[in-house]
Write a protein that binds this DNA or RNA. Structure first.
Lengths: 138, 138
DNA sequence: TTCCATGCAAAGGGTTTGCACTCTC
DNA sequence: GAGAGTGCAAACCCTTTGCATGGAA
């Protein structure tokens, strides 16, 4: 891990208005230095490789904070666990229900045309597209 | 509840190759006699109004069976609980994250254009579109 | 008699909560 | 010394599982 990356994620947290702490920096390093899809547990595991004194609760707190500040997006694709996506640009997802593997589908490859008129008093939050695929069993 | 509806759902189960039992009939009556989005717990509650001797496990078993036979579709829109949709025709969904209310969006109102080329060895299962909205707080 | 369906209770797994401790400002 | 951040363990909630009972073929 280079110092440069540490500095950069620290700056991202400050810009987002998030007070910097050791654990938040670690979660940010794992999650925000490249586009990834990870579950809370995978993140905790990766963080503990370098910072073992990190609790599960803190990771959940941090993820909630990052989501509120729009640093990550929550992906609801599997009832078993929530995934966190560090790519906050508009894009869609391909989910392999057999392997649990998630991949990005760019807005170039796929377009949603049309939008139903929303009920009165509601604002659009986001549009999720999930392409579910199944690995052919041999 | 009219006899006619009972007969009709019973026939749907038989056509789907599902042996008819009292509990399955009740779940089918609650779920399949009109288009609804319900959680397992809501279904259990409704079933127990008329057939109190129904266990949670049986409802889950029955829902899994119905899903395998394509009588219902599972909706993964909320990490808290799975919803079951009795509308098996292709369509999309609008989800109010504030109220938890789900509604259908027909394929007329919205179209997905384009499809990324799938990784080798996988089959398309389905394409989900979820429009997330938020109720404006007064 | 052999299955299959069911009820009940317990277990399981991801997430949240309560609480005490520590650190910072 | 007040407030925020953290670790730990327990609580929570939805769903699944194990097991014994009961019924149908």
């Amino acid at each position: 891990m280079e110092m440069r990356q540490f500095r950069e994620v620290a700056e991202r947290l400050r810009v987002a208005g998030i007070p910097v702490t050791l654990q938040r920096l670690e979660v940010a390093r794992v999650l925000l230095t490249r586009p990834v899809h990870m579950s809370a547990d995978q993140i905790l595991e990766r963080v503990r490789e370098t910072t073992p004194e990190t609790s599960r609760a803190t990771v959940y707190n941090t993820l909630k904070l990052f989501r509120e500040k729009n640093l990550v997006r929550e992906l609801i694709v599997d009832p078993e666990r929530t995934f966190y996506d560090s790519n906050t640009a508009p894009h869609y997802h391909l989910y392999d229900v057999t392997t649990g593997k998630l991949s990005d589908v760019s807005a170039d490859e796929l377009t949603v045309v049309g939008m139903p008129k929303l009920p009165p008093g509601v604002d659009l939050e986001e549009v999720d597209v999930i392409i579910r695929v199944r690995s052919r069993s041999a």
